[in-house]
Design a protein around this nucleic acid. Structure first.
Ligand SMILES: [Mn+2]
Ligand SMILES: [Mn+2]
Ligand SMILES: [Mn+2]
Ligand SMILES: [Mn+2]
Lengths: 218, 218
DNA sequence: TTTAATTTTTAGTCTTGTCTAAACTTATGG
DNA sequence: CCATAAGTTTAGACAAGACTAAAAATTAAA
């Protein structure tokens, strides 16, 4: 059995591993979890001992198959709870992360099985992130960053990379959400900003925004 | 803010206080929480320092107003989650306690407010226990133990005193649940056992059963 | 290829919550 | 009313997780 703290470490390392392509550095984990590097060293040594990750001094950490299983299961629970909070309890999509951060640690296989059924086996959470199945499999989805689109290309917003409250509320006020059709009207090479069409209105956005919206172009 | 362990202590002491009428003994808390008396002494001293209970060496503990507020709030959350698990996720009434024991510690006022609304502001949990309101008020209900009924008296089962899996499953197999009408057909003075009528069938029960069923006679 | 900067680990402490063993109070029964 | 039992508290220890300060390894710069 894994503690709340251990689960949080495994989840963080899982996410970092996807970005970094190599071993996950102690510092990166510390930044993500808002702790000190020395605390991370202690924990990864313990987790290595428990065989959920491999670790070599100064070389960083890799999750083992077992570690990935646990991480994806926590992520599955997190995202299912987020769906519950938005779909059933009518929370806004920017309000659910904190609460799901707690709920993801509730221990009961049966609970998650039933929650999943209650929610009609959703494939994505309210931020467009895919929900892993019971075995940790995540079906790959067609999506690119809005910043990768060319002038005059259009697509549907299928997710957000960042999901901070500030960003989500920014999107809310501009009527951008999952499912919204977005067309690139113009791109400015100099600062990577672009003008986009959302419904009837045109909107000028910075590259920071464009780099955090996932688009499906089909 | 109170930790999970502190909340469990406050809840346990709250329940024990209702039974004992005087100060709650260190031993009683230890038994209820499955810990050692020495651990309890440490904790009640800490909680006394935090002003949620009053404690005198060798004299036991009393919750303060503040302590009762926290305890009833945890109980409110526990029971609301139990309703959710049974009403929405279709768990059996004997399967929900363990899970609610974890869920009761999730921290979010808003979550509970919305959960309560989602469940249509229930007054009782699946075991017939009343759900305290946001201020900790519990509306008193008319109920007595089945063992207190006289021969030929009848009433409706409105709750269980014990809620162990064994007992609840015993009731299930005999078609006794919340809302079931029960009539006392006969009482045996010698061993306090009784014969009761449930629907079409008669049933002989021991005093242990009769002492754990709450009945409303109106 | 040394030196300096950065990253990581170790050593030592702390808090929370638990335990055992021993000491101390209170309650009981002769 | 005193001796023993029962209940309770203290003393000392431990595991989990965190932190600070200092040492060591790695990387980058000169
Ligand atoms: Mn978490
Ligand atoms: Mn999400
Ligand atoms: Mn609990
Ligand atoms: Mn209950």
């Amino acid at each position: 059995m894994f503690t709340l703290a251990e689960e949080n470490y495994l989840k963080a390392i899982y996410h970092l591993e996807k970005e970094s392509k190599s071993g996950v550095s102690t510092n990166a984990i510390a930044v993500k979890l808002n702790t000190q590097p020395s605390s991370v060293t202690d924990m990864v040594q313990k987790l290595a001992h428990k065989k959920v990750l491999s670790y070599q001094k100064y070389k960083g950490s890799f999750l083992t198959k077992e570690g990935k299983k646990i991480a994806t299961n926590v992520i599955r629970k997190h995202r299912l709870w987020e769906v519950f909070l938005v779909e059933k309890l009518k929370f806004q999509w920017d309000e659910v992360h904190e609460i799901a951060e707690q709920l993801e640690h509730i221990k009961s296989e049966e609970l998650i099985k039933r929650l999943d059924a209650f929610l009609d086996h959703p494939d994505f959470d309210p931020h467009g992130d895919p929900i892993p199945d019971e075995n940790g499999n995540i079906k790959p989805t067609e999506k690119k960053l809005l910043s990768e689109l060319q002038k005059d290309q259009r697509g549907i917003c299928v997710g957000v990379k960042e999901s901070s409250s500030q960003f989500l509320q920014y999107l809310d006020t501009r009527n951008i959400g999952i499912g919204t059709t977005i067309k690139v009207v113009d791109k400015e090479e100099f600062d990577d900003s672009m003008t986009i069409q959302v419904g009837e209105t045109q909107l000028h956005i910075t590259d920071k925004i464009a780099h955090n919206l996932y688009i499906n172009t089909n």
